[in-house]
Amino acid sequence: MQTEWFILLSVILFTMGVLGVLFRRNAILVFMSVELMLNATNLALVAFAHQWGSEAGHLFVFFIITVAAAEVAVGLALIVAIFRTKHSINIDDLRQMEG
């Protein structure tokens, strides 16, 4: 199995995640796009770990997944909080501070 193909897939997914951040205006979806980027990273790491036969890549993935969980907790809390105040989670509406 060639690592190359996995890396290519990972780059594609990463780019799609980036596009998601830029395209979507719903804060939750923006956030999900970031998760997609992290997933792409995970794929690259596992592929490299396979190629190198070293465990460090797997460990890294483990840490990323868990950190993502922590991020999600805080991120969703933020979104809920701002929804309560503003009744909108459209990030284009975040323009209280100008210029």
């Binding site: 205006r25 719903n26 956030f31 284009d92």
Partner: peptide, 17 residues
């Protein structure tokens, strides 16, 4: 699951304007 829960909670499923 958390994501979907929050989406449903906020009724934010069709917010993308």
């Amino acid at each position: 699951v958390l994501f979907i829960f929050v989406i449903m909670l906020l009724g934010a499923d069709k917010l993308d304007l």
